[in-house]
Simulated assay, not measured.
Amino acid sequence: MVERTSWPLILTLWGAGLGAAAQYGKVSVIFDLLPQAYPDAGPALGWVVSLVGFVGILFGVVAGLVVARIRYRRALLSALWVGAAVSLFQASLPPLPWMLISRVIEGASHLAIVVAAPTLIAQLCAPKDRGLALTLWGTFFGVAFAVLAFGGYPLAVNLGLPALFAGHALYMAVFAILLGARLRALPEEGVQPELSLSQILRDHVKIYRSPFIAAPAAGWLFYTFSFVSVLTLLPPFLDPALRAMVMTAMPLTSIVVSMTLGVALLRIMPAVRVIELGFAFSALCMIWLWAVPAAPWACIALAGGLGLVQGASFAAVPQLNDNAATQAQANGAMAQMGNLGNTLGTPVIAMAIAGLGYSALPLLVAVVLAVGGLAHLLLGYARR
């Protein structure tokens, strides 16, 4: 067990996570510019964004098994180098079919990073620092998207799309070099099971039947379903004069609350209790948004509540699973459920709004958040 946390190394692993989030974000933030490079692609351009997520849905748990088998350091460094090579290839703006193939490969690279890095962080932290370190890890998506929106989009506008892809390739290569020099392999954990289709299916059953391994992923499904759909679909209902301020404040509030109040709560209560508090408070905020449509302070309070869920969900992984192999499985399941929530949330809520109007948004999301909290309560009962 590590007695002293190497914070420079933890921050470097977090930096690698920002690169993984940018594998999603670099295309999302420039989506309106892609028709310049692919003028005849039409609706097929949507696949350039979504293919990374579909890889996560299909192979999230598999990634946890593969990473455990080939070892965490090797998996992380390989994924960073593959990510760098893919981004460099994308900088050539290849024909659309090749771009789509590269996004599938990038999805595999992304999965390996988001499974290996938090598993390594949990193992390389002193127990007292795990809550803070994994809450920091939980901010990687929000921070990366903010940086890309602030700097990546202007870079693509001023210097062209290849500049953004090449910059991302350089970033991934730098972190592969830094971590290659500093990161040591974890101790061996014995022989890992053979990877076969039957073994993968058995492991899916084992993971999702376990109230320890599956719990973080169960909550993460409802969190991602809600957070992404609210950030995507709420803006048109906000006062235009306040819209930019509210939509900027929401992700920032989520990060700040997770890093302050969330970390403080993790020092005095289990991570699962913090998640349950976050879900309950967020559901109440959605009722507030139903009673006072598009109230700005309700939006910001909602982001704060979801920030508790965000950080504590990653902190729950090592609290519920005491070895690196089951932690990798839990992180793989989180990746799978997170991608499923990201993919389903916006279209499902959009269809509800189309049929029932604005009120469908707060009421349906309130139910989803309440079910997320209930899922954790039921899994806690199963663990006891």
Rank of each mutant, 00 (worst) to 15 (best):
E3L: 13
T5K: 11
S6H: 12
G19Q: 10
A20P: 06
A22T: 12
Q23Y: 12
D32S: 15
L33R: 08
Q36H: 10
Y38T: 06
P39F: 05
D40P: 02
A41V: 06
W47R: 10
V49K: 13
G53Q: 15
V62Y: 11
V62H: 12
R69D: 11
R74L: 03
S78G: 15
A79E: 01
W81R: 11
G83N: 11
A84V: 01
A85C: 08
V86R: 10
V86H: 07
F89W: 13
Q90M: 15
S92D: 08
P94R: 09
P95L: 10
L100I: 05
L100R: 07
L100Q: 11
L100M: 14
L100A: 07
S102E: 12
V104H: 03
E106R: 07
A112V: 09
V114R: 12
P118F: 10
L120M: 09
L124W: 03
C125K: 09
L132K: 14
L136P: 08
T139V: 10
F140W: 08
F145H: 09
A146K: 07
V147W: 10
A149N: 13
N158W: 15
L159S: 15
A166Y: 12
G167A: 15
A169T: 12
A169G: 15
L170D: 08
L183W: 11
A185F: 01
E188A: 14
Q192L: 14
P193Y: 06
L195V: 14
S196K: 07
S198E: 13
D203Y: 05
D203H: 11
A214I: 04
A217W: 09
L221T: 02
L221G: 00
F222G: 05
S226F: 05
V228W: 10
V228M: 14
P235N: 11
P236T: 08
P236M: 09
F237M: 02
L238F: 05
A241M: 12
R243C: 03
A244N: 04
T248S: 13
M250L: 04
P251K: 02
T253V: 05
S254M: 15
S254F: 06
S254T: 12
I255S: 07
V257R: 04
M259W: 03
L261K: 00
L266G: 02
M269A: 08
M269P: 01
A271S: 09
A271P: 00
R273M: 05
L277I: 10
L277D: 00
L284R: 00
I287W: 05
A291S: 00
V292A: 08
V292T: 01
P293I: 02
P293T: 02
A295C: 02
A301K: 00
L302D: 03
L302I: 01
L302F: 13
G305F: 04
G311H: 01
A316P: 03
V317R: 05
V317M: 01
L320Y: 01
L320K: 02
L320W: 00
D322T: 06
N323K: 04
Q329R: 14
Q329Y: 06
Q336C: 01
Q336T: 03
G341Q: 02
N342I: 13
L344P: 04
P347D: 04
P347A: 01
I349E: 04
M351C: 06
G355Q: 14
G357K: 12
Y358F: 11
A360C: 07
L364T: 13
L369S: 08
V371C: 11
G372E: 09
L374S: 08
H376Q: 14
R384V: 02
